[in-house]
Every structure is written in structure tokens, then in C-alpha cells.
Amino acid sequence: MFARLRSSWPVLGAFLLVLGVSGTYSLLLCALLWWVGLPWWIGLIPFGFSLVGAEALHVLRDNEPPTKDTFVIARDDDSRVHAVLDRLCALTGLDRPVLRLYGAEGPNAVAHVPDRGPATVYVTADLLEQLDNQQLEAVLAHELAHLSHRDQRVISFAEGMSRWMLNLPISAVNLMYRVNEALWVLSLRAGTDWDPLFDAVEEVAEKRERIRRAEPLPLLLRPLALVVVLLGRGLIIIAALAVLPATLAGVLLFILTALPSNIVVLRLVRRRELAADRAAAELTGAPTVLASVLTSMTAAIPVSQPKGLSSLAAMDALSILPHTHPQPRETGAEDGFWRKSIALCRRAFSTHPPVAARVDALRDLASRRLTG
């Protein structure tokens, strides 16, 4: 039990640090309110908002696939990767995720769980071409560990906790967009074509024709539907006027609190990466294989990606490696104070631990398995 707690503490401690930063802001606000003679307990409200905002962001955000222009890998396309995935899912008891190919350069893999539909593991063509079966098993085990640990959900909640001052008004805007679309659909079914407010509906013309072909509302319900649409559109306009100043205030608060919040969230992301390495090594029973494949894959990651794939940085949190080559290796010429400071800042704002640290942790695990 102690060993299990010891291995899980780095991740738990990082998450508690995220909660601690938000709680510290509330305590500082309590102290300020007490000092000016106002009720101190009002300062606890932001902490509650951070919890509500984190959950609201998850519920209301559009959880789109991490990248477009992907293709399902059928068994006939690559039976080898399917056989490796089948074996890992049988060992873990996890539901089998969908395998998709995406267009990043270099060997890489990403785990993603959409709002609707099965979990998905994205892999690159270079990954399938350059890795043998044992190496491919180590990489896929790492991504299955992310799915098993629900890392996407945990990281999303942590980001919401650290950015609640922006997430609440943003979630309100997302909610207005969704209500706006529903009212537009209702107006079409009632026989009136009112354009959606804010131009919020994508592919309006295509949706308009599809809805018009659907069964319209009965004649007796159409007047009531139009009244609902009119009232709803008026409430949306009023809400938009109220949300705008809240959003501006949220931006100001975010600027003042963003630095420590981002640092602790990224620390959590790096800890989840180390935990996924450990889980993959324990599942496959080959920590040294994962260590060697991390080293070889890092050398093959390009310095930059094609312009059409600039959004790949958003996928780094659950990819086995960053999509662009990490900073150059430190040499003896980089012993100056400023160079060390820059390297420290880069690590603080990176989504992945240094590969050397990951390799050392895996080799330490391998040595303990041999001696244990």
C-alpha cells in the first residue's frame, strides 16, 4: 500500500498544488476584504466559482477532435497495429479505442476522448513505419494509460480550476450560442426563417435545407413556438450585454493570475506523463523498451510541423512526445546564469518532462524489478 501511495503521490501532489493556487487567491482576497472592513467570507466565493467553472467548461465546451483530416485505420490497412492493440486491451480490460491516422511529421501518438463516441488513439505514419512490434506496444500502452487514468478529464478540470475567471463568461457565451441555434431551428420548424444571432451556426444553408425537409410543427403550436423564439432572442441579447463586462473583468484577472496557474497546471501535465510511462512499463513488463523508443523517437521529431498543422500544440498534453523537437541539449557552454535561467523557464512551461528524466525513471523501475 505504501509503495502504491508513493508512486501515485507525485500526480496527487501536483493536483493538490492546482487546488492550492486557486485557494491561495481566495485567502488573499479574504485578507484584503477583512483589512478594508468588509465581510471576509466573500473571498471564498471565487474558490467556489473555480469549481463550478471547471465543471461548466467541461460540460459546455465543444470537445472537437484534436485534429482534422484523419483516417480510420482498418484491419486490412495495418493488421499489425490492430493485433498489438487487441493484446493490450485484453490485458487491461479497457474498451478498444478507435485507431486513426493523422498527418503530423515524425513518430507520435495521441489519446483523445470525445463527448460522443468511443475513445480514439491517433498515430502518425512515421510511427507505424519506424517502430517494431515491441516498440509499438510500448507506445500504445502509454496512450492506453492516458485513457485508463482519464488524464484528459483531469487536465481539463485543472485548467478550468486555474482559469475560472475566464471560463465562466466563456461558458456563458457557449451556452448562448447553443440556445441561439436551438431557437433558430425552432423558428424554421414553425415556418419562419430568422437568421441566427451572432452568426453562430456553421453551414447555415446546409442545415436550413435539412431542417426544412424534416417534419414541421403542427399549425396550432407554431404561434407558441414563435413567441418562445422572440422571448429567447431577447433574453440572449440581454445576457450578451451582461456577459461582456464580466468577460473583460475576467481577462484582467486572468492576466494577473495566469503565470502561477499555468505553471502548476503544466506541472500536473508532466506528472501525468510520467505516470503514463510507468503504467505502460508495468503493463508491457519492458521499461527499457519504452526508454529506448522515447530516445529514438525524440531524435526523429522535426523542429517544426507543416503550416496546416499549427494546431498540434494543443494536442501535446496527451501525446507521447511534443510535436516539435524540444530545446537543444544542454552543453558545457551553457553554464552561464542566463542560459540556465532560460532552460529552467522552458522546463516550467513545457508539457513533457525532459526525455532524459523519463528514461532515468524507466531505468530505475527496471532495476527495481530485477532486484525485487
Rank of each mutant, 00 (worst) to 15 (best):
Met1Cys: 04
Arg6Phe: 06
Val11Glu: 10
Ala31Glu: 01
Leu32Phe: 05
Leu33Val: 07
Leu38Trp: 13
Trp40Gln: 12
Gly43Tyr: 04
Leu44Gln: 00
Phe47Asn: 04
Ser50Met: 05
Ser50Ile: 10
Leu60Asn: 02
Arg61Asn: 09
Asn63Ala: 11
Phe71Tyr: 07
Cys89Asp: 01
Asp95Cys: 05
Arg96Ile: 09
Gly103Asp: 14
Ala111Thr: 04
Pro114Asp: 07
Pro114Leu: 12
Val123Met: 08
Glu129Lys: 08
Val139Ser: 06
Arg150His: 12
Ile155Gln: 15
Ala158Thr: 09
Arg163Gly: 08
Trp164Ser: 14
Met165Cys: 11
Ile170Asp: 09
Ala172Val: 05
Leu175Thr: 15
Met176Lys: 03
Arg178Val: 13
Trp184Glu: 11
Trp184Thr: 15
Leu186Asn: 05
Ser187Asn: 07
Ser187Thr: 13
Thr192Asn: 12
Asp195Asn: 08
Arg208His: 10
Pro216Ser: 10
Leu221Thr: 15
Ala225Lys: 05
Val229Asp: 09
Leu230Cys: 02
Leu231Ser: 03
Arg233Glu: 12
Leu235Phe: 08
Leu241Gln: 04
Leu252Met: 09
Leu253Glu: 01
Phe254Asp: 13
Thr257Cys: 03
Thr257Gln: 13
Leu259Trp: 02
Ala275Trp: 01
Ala280Glu: 07
Glu282Phe: 00
Pro287Glu: 10
Val289Asn: 00
Leu290Gly: 08
Ser296Gln: 11
Ser296Ala: 13
Ser296Met: 04
Ala300Phe: 00
Pro302Arg: 10
Val303Gly: 09
Pro306His: 11
Ser310Asp: 14
Asp316Ser: 12
Thr324Pro: 00
Gln327Asn: 05
Gly332Leu: 15
Glu334Lys: 04
Trp338Glu: 11
Lys340Arg: 15
Ser341Phe: 14
Ile342Met: 09
His352Asp: 07
Val355Pro: 01
Ala357Gln: 12
Arg358Ser: 14
